[in-house]
Design a protein around this nucleic acid. Structure first.
Length: 875
RNA sequence: GGGGGCAUAGCUCAGCUGGUUAGAGCGCUCGCUUCACAUGCGAGAGGUCGGGGGUUCAAGUCCCUCUGCCCCUACCA
């Protein structure tokens, strides 16, 4: 017994139940199957601290559309889920909880206990976001859920670290890095966001020793002068040639510092003199190395002045700045202050201004890794969609610096380097080192630092499949097929996966990178916590359903471009779901048996809808192959709403209500087409399609694993489509005419059709009656009807004797307007066909179409003229 | 300083390798309680595809240029 469907679709009643049904059927599980082709996506692992936001919703929707399509197409479609330990982000969250709940810092607990706390926290909340993904309908293989700090991923991290170290591609060195004083850790270049900020240019006078002269330097960070160890000028600067080699006296400090010449200095900028602070500026650091300058670090890990700062010791960097400026002024060294806007770097996690500081850190040597990673994209092994992102990627890779990978955090992969307390030897090893291989001492300690979070996510496509072990999964599913992500994460993640995959597995980690844009609010602003303009996907799902949310995200969205999100958009999507629901209700209400195959006899409207469907299948498949998901969905949408619901169902009613064999035939075609519709739409709107599909006659256990439709030449009825189009445009014309003249369809009237294709129109006789308010119909090659409303359409003249409703003058005006339009088109057509260039160079098909069009137009013009003449007679 | 994007109907946006009369959703107007659906049905109004130039038989689509927004990237103190 079939269950009756409700009048309005209620996603809340359906979605969780359907998701459970999928889980129970184990339909998302993928296994290596030699009989199938693999299709693999690894999820961009959301932070364990994360809450599902619209960006995730878009990203997961895109992935799910792809994976569901391929699964139905018979691929071994694997979508690997998981989360990222998100070093800084997670540590911040747990530290905040610790502070708020217990008033403690991580130092109060100590490293070991703190890390255990984070694990506890992860166990408690870490799966929240993955549960939220289920609400969206994500068809991940949950049996393969991974975590960047689980055992396997951690093994991979150690393996990679040791390999790179042994190849000399990881080194430890003292260099200028970006330091976040709030997180008290080093950051990579990618983790710093630059913002244009108003600031000042302080011009400071440095006396030259043994003279009464002085030099003026300009700086945006006066506090760094405490660490100055030279003044530099350009060697070609005539102004300063005489003083190069002399000594300057550092104001406030009194230190004697050399005046040096270096090409780095731009003569035309500022005063042409630059203070050199090797420990607090990357350029100065290089200058310092070139000239063997003293390196004086003046800040501690909290960006407070350290003991090298003399009387400023202990002051925070900004307090120190204020004090130093005041002192400079007091002592007469401050020449002037200028307004100056400049780029200030911020920590991408906590937005604190970062400090460039010389520090001993671990780095990945990038040049040798970048080269093959660039080539892989250049030679097409890895393709970006849209293509323009490959340029952005290559550009970035070409200018990449060594990657600072050590973080002074507690939450993360600890660096596998061990130091001997006795002889100082360092040993890098996958295994814990308890005995110094050099001196045999057992006084060993491991490096305190952890690795950049992105170091482990860079390995995600292969670490999740078992690497470094040679697993069957790795062999089968790797390289993965498609990576789906937003453009803002290309540098952090995509680039690093590419060089890591190439270096460690010898293969690029994926074939295609499918890039989408960001989801913005209705005003086009980025959704953010601080603005409070974020729309919660879970609330949208509660209100409208996950299918509606997915539809709203996928429709009218083109690769790589940002999109706006609004309630209206979801409402429209919800309405579409309801439309489909009701179409299905109708089909069910008129069901004749459980047959799923097409009936032997097909009518004109049957052939028309089947032929259209067939083409939609081909188009949509092609669009999805090209990642044109928005276009694909649009085609499915208009086929369902415009062709199936508005036309085919209405036409089918004729036979359904007539009963008997006719009704059965129509019913079976309805079921057949609906089945295909549900399959085409399923990747986009999985819940409602599965729910409906389970209710209609079907083959197989679940739509989620039902075979995806394919184009079939046997269902190509091009000629019938054309015939149907003639009838449809005639029906539309009559409706338009009636609407314009305020004659409701309920007011029936006779219809006379003069046409040279009487057989064609005869096939649609009943259609006119049903859809155009026609009571009786006569179709002839030659017809003359007095006092009739006349409409000229391709291949036919339609006449409705309704003289009492026709104002001859208005009718004449209308016909004249049509005549002018037709003549206009004819002129265009003719001039085109008379154009020699067009005839000789345009494709034959196009010329042929143009000729047909001209003939048809001329025929219509004749008929219009004829009608005008008749109108004259009547008058 | 480099690189990229966007500009199409009142609003938000599609429009693939150039090819009929440029599309959708929302909004708007008119008419419909028609036996799946008013979260609906039918009919409409609304666009010099940012300006200018070029290539082509043919340009919203390709090239150049200008204008206006937006983003990324970069060590000018």
């Amino acid at each position: 017994m079939r269950k009756e469907l409700e009048k309005t679709y209620d996603p809340v009643q359906v979605e969780d139940r359907i998701y459970d049904f999928w889980l129970k059927g184990n339909y998302f599980a993928a296994k290596a199957d030699p009989a199938k082709k693999p299709y693999t996506i690894v999820i961009p692992p959301p932070n364990v601290t994360g809450q599902l936001h619209m960006g995730h919703a878009l990203d997961e929707t895109m992935q799910d559309i792809l994976i569901r399509t391929r699964r139905m197409q018979g691929y071994a479609a694997l979508w690997v889920p998981g989360t990222d330990h998100a070093g800084i982000a997670t540590q911040i969250v747990v530290e905040a909880a610790l502070r708020n709940n217990e008033g403690k810092t991580r130092y109060d607990l100590g490293r070991e206990r703190f890390v255990r706390r984070v694990w506890d926290w992860k166990e408690l909340y870490g799966n929240r976001i993955l549960k939220q993904l289920r609400k969206l309908g994500s068809s991940c293989d949950w049996s393969r859920e991974r975590f960047t700090m689980d055992e396997g991923c951690s093994e991979a991290v150690k393996e990679v670290f040791v390999n790179l170290y042994n190849k000399g591609l990881i080194y430890r060195g003292n260099r200028i890095i970006n330091w976040c004083p709030r997180c008290t850790t080093a950051l990579s270049d990618a983790e710093v966001e630059y913002k244009e900020q108003p600031g000042h240019f302080w011009h400071i006078r440095y006396p030259i020793k043994g003279t009464s002269k002085s030099l003026v330097v300009a700086t945006t960070r006066p506090e760094t002068m405490l660490g100055d160890t030279a003044i530099a000028v350009n060697p070609n600067d005539e102004r300063y040639k005489s003083i190069v080699g002399k000594t300057a006296i550092l104001p406030l400090v009194g230190r004697e510092i050399p005046i040096i010449a270096d090409d780095y200095v731009d003569m035309d900028f500022g005063t042409g003199c630059v203070k050199i602070t090797p420990c607090h500026d990357p350029n100065d650091f290089e200058v310092g190395k070139r000239h063997g300058l003293e390196e004086i670090l003046i800040m501690d890990e909290n960006a407070c002045i350290n003991k090298n700062g003399g009387r400023y010791f202990g002051l925070d960097r900004y307090a120190a700045r204020k004090q130093i400026v005041a002192d400079l002024e007091k002592e007469g060294y401050l020449v002037k202050i200028e307004e100056h806007s400049h780029n200030v770097g911020e920590c991408y996690r906590c937005k604190t201004t970062v400090e460039p500081i010389a520090s001993r850190q671990w780095f990945v040597k990038m040049a040798p890794l970048a080269k093959p990673a660039i080539e892989a994209v250049e030679n097409g092994d890895v393709k970006f969609v849209p293509e323009r992102f490959s340029k952005i990627y290559i550009n970035w890779m070409n200018n990449i610096h060594d990657w600072c990978i050590s973080r002074q955090l507690w939450w993360g992969h600890r660096i596998p380097a061990y130091y001997c307390d006795d002889c100082g030897e360092m040993t890098v090893s996958k295994e814990t080192v308890n005995v110094c291989p050099k001196c045999g001492s057992n006084h060993m300690h491991q490096d305190e630092d952890v690795l950049d979070t992105w170091f482990s996510s860079a390995l995600w496509p292969f670490s999740t499949l078992g690497w470094p072990k040679k697993t069957a999964d790795l062999d089968y599913f790797y390289p993965t097929t498609t990576l789906v992500t937003a453009y803002d994460i290309i540098f952090f993640w995509v680039a690093r996966m590419i060089f890591s995959g190439l270096e460690h597995t010898g293969k690029p980690p994926f074939k295609t990178v499918f890039i989408h844009g960001l989801v913005r609010d209705a005003q086009g602003r980025k959704m953010s916590k601080s603005l409070g303009n974020g729309i919660d996907p879970l609330k949208v799902i509660e209100q409208y359903g996950a299918d509606a949310l997915r539809f709203a995200l996928a429709t009218n969205n083109s690769p790589g471009n940002d999109m706006r999100f609004s309630d209206e958009k979801v409402e429209a999507s919800r309405n579409f779901a309801n439309k489909l629901w009701n179409a299905a209700r109708f089909v069910l209400m008129n069901l004749h048996g459980e047959e799923t195959a097409l009936p032997a006899h097909l009518t004109l409207d049957d052939k028309w809808i089947l032929s259209k469907l067939n083409n939609v299948v081909a188009d949509v498949t092609a669009n999805i192959d090209k990642f044109e998901l928005g276009i694909a969905l649009d085609k499915v949408y208009s086929f369902i709403w415009d062709d199936f619901c508005d036309w085919y169902i209405e036409l089918a009613k004729i036979r359904l209500f007539a009963g008997g064999e006719q009704a059965e035939g129509a019913s079976r075609v309805l079921v057949y087409v609906l089945d295909k519709i549900l399959k085409l739409l399923h990747p986009f709107m999985p819940f409602i399609t599965e729910e409906i599909w389970q209710s209609i006659p079907h083959e197989g256990k679940a739509l989620v694993v039902a075979p995806y439709p394919e184009y079939s030449e046997a269902l190509n009825f091009a000629a019938d489509e054309e015939d149907m189009n003639l009838i449809m445009s005639a029906i539309k014309e009559i409706r338009a005419k009636r609407a314009a003249m305020n004659i409701p369809l309920s007011k029936k009237a006779a219809l006379f059709i003069e046409t040279d294709k009487p057989e064609t129109f005869a096939k649609g006789a009943e259609f006119f009656k049903r859809l155009a308010g026609v009571s009786e119909i006569e179709i002839e090659r030659e017809l003359s009807v007095a006092n009739a409303l006349t409409m000229v359409v391709p291949s036919a003249k339609l006449m409705i004797p309704m003289n009492e409703l026709v104002d001859p003058e208005k009718e004449r005006a209308r016909l004249n307007k049509e005549k002018a339009a037709a003549e206009n088109e004819i002129t265009r057509c003719e001039s085109r066909l008379n154009n020699e260039g067009f005839i000789s160079k345009a494709p034959a098909k196009l010329i042929e179409d143009e000729r047909k069009k001209l003939a048809s137009l001329k025929e219509m013009l004749d008929k219009i003229n004829d009608s005008l003449a008749k109108l004259g007679e009547i008058k």
